[in-house]
Structure formats: structure tokens, C-alpha cells
Design a binder for these strands. Sequence first.
DNA 1: TTAAATAGGACTAGAATAGTCCCAATTACT
DNA 2: AGTAATTGGGACTATTCTAGTCCTATTTAA
Lengths: 149, 149
Amino acid sequence: MLRLSKLTDYATVILSFMAKDKPQVHAAMEIAGVTGIALPTVSKILKLLVNANVLTSTRGAKGGYALARLPEEISIAMVISALEGPIALTECSISQQGCEQASGCDIRGSWNLINQTIHNALESVTLADLIRPAAVPEEVFIPVSSLYQ
Amino acid sequence: MLRLSKLTDYATVILSFMAKDKPQVHAAMEIAGVTGIALPTVSKILKLLVNANVLTSTRGAKGGYALARLPEEISIAMVISALEGPIALTECSISQQGCEQASGCDIRGSWNLINQTIHNALESVTLADLIRPAAVPEEVFIPVSSLYQ
DNA sequence: TTAAATAGGACTAGAATAGTCCCAATTACT
DNA sequence: AGTAATTGGGACTATTCTAGTCCTATTTAA
């Protein structure tokens, strides 16, 4: 289904809330209450986002989490890779140690192009875009095929 | 990891072989031999591709599988959805019956945009592109962010 | 009639995901 | 100093998904 994990989905909900809400620091419990996501799950996600430098954390009483940078500077690609590791559609795009398909597999270069395309698409959408009221355009223009000419 | 299933990966290898090779009809066993993928797995994939109208099949002795249309007319998006179902990154993009996130989830519209973007990217790459020797361009231009202005 | 194929589905084993829980470390407040 | 409120890091379990195999029925060429 070419899908993101549920955790990534949650992460966007959490980050959207944090980007929209004024106070800089939010405790995990607060976020759980607002979003309706179970606390242990929220904690897990927040920790992953800290490790990826999307969030900063403060420990101790009155501690919590805050965005590490402006919503405009947090891309969806960053969020996805924080939760799921590198963005790559196929195995062989990650580990370069040749696939077992002895013959016929010189399509790797093409996959790289597709990966690049999708990565760029995800890179170009930021958290700021997500919380903006969605004005869906009539047409989305992706001139990938033209690259082959 | 935002990854495709292994079966989809295999499917592209199989289809690439079929697109490159002259004879119109290939038996599953032949394809298994050439690609190095186990026969039962090849069969499974071929059946799925037939159901998605990417391939046509002929039963009986001397039967086999053939492309249902020209390589230029078979998009990667078709292949992916044949193997994995609809292309949609998030759950709520598929089933429209509102997610449980009571508050704060009006980012669905934005996800739809991202889905659309990626779908278009995958739609624009065809089987013909895959078998073409990959001339990877220096830059891939995706003007998604400009849509928000 | 037989052999070579696909059609369709059931089935199993393994891997990945989602989700929970525990305990250590840190910090604010009294 | 002590306590409560937090995050940090990991272990753990259950469930779901994926990969892969296999069986039987159907179709068709020779």
C-alpha cells in the first residue's frame, strides 16, 4: 500500500498541535490528552523526534518538548525518516551490496530516480504547510517524465 | 521506511524482462528461470498483475503471460497498486470514515496533497523508462511548495 | 487422451509494527 | 534535603502484515 506507519501519522498530528499552539514547551502527558493518543505511544514518538533533532527536550519537573526549529524548517521528509529510517522504496536502494537477481536487474538507477523524486516531494512540504488550511490545487505538476527525454 | 514490498520489487524486475524480450508470451516457469525468483512467487505476482490488467494471460499448453499494453503505457503507479492496493500514505486517506483523533486533525487535506503528489510522480514513470538505460539527471525539480503560495 | 499451462485459494513461517511497561536520571519547587 | 514531575532508554509482548509455498480445478495444444 506504500504506506507510512501509524506512528508517523501520529507524529504529524502531534507536531501539528505543537506548531499551532503558543506555549513553547509541552509535556508528553499534555500532548496525549490533547491528541487522544495513548501516553506510552506519545512518549515513544517524542523520543524518536528528539533523536532526529526535530524536537528538543527538557528534563525534570516543568520539563517537556518543544520544536527544535521553525515549522517552515521542518519537512515531512525529516519526520518520516525520524520515525521510519531512510526514505527509500526498495531494499537495494539502501544497502548497495547488489541484489540476488543475477540477470536483468539494471533498473536500480531508475529506482534511484524515483526515490529521489519522492524524497524531494516530501522534502518540499513542511510542517507549516500542514497546519495551513488546505487549499488543494486543481493540478499538481510533476515533470518527472520529461527528465528522460 | 516508506518502502515497497518485496513483491512489488520483483514485479518490476519481471515486467522489465517482459518488456525487453521479444516474444509476446512467457510462461511463469520461463520467467522464474530468467529472473531467479522462485516459481510459486512468480506465479503469485503474475496473477496479481493479470487482475490489475497489466498483463493478459492465456491458459493451457503454450499459454503464458504477455503485457496488456505498451511499456510506455504501464506506469509504476499501476504496478504498485496492483501489488499493494491503493497508493495512499495514511490510513485516513483511504477510508474516509473519520479518524479517532477527536481534535486537531484537520491536516487530512494536506495529506491528500502529498498523496496526490507522490501518486503523480509514480504515474509519470513508466515501464519504458525503467528499461531505458538510466541517465540520472543532476537535479529533480518538484515544485510542490510553490503550490502553497 | 495427455501434458502444459493458468486460476484461485488455503496455508505456514517469519518479520515488522504497535503498543505497553519499567527503572534510571534530571530538575523545579517547597 | 526531599518530593513530585518529567524525560531517557530500553525490554518486552501481542498482533498484524509479508513472503513464500502448495494444492486442486480449469483450460488448451498436440
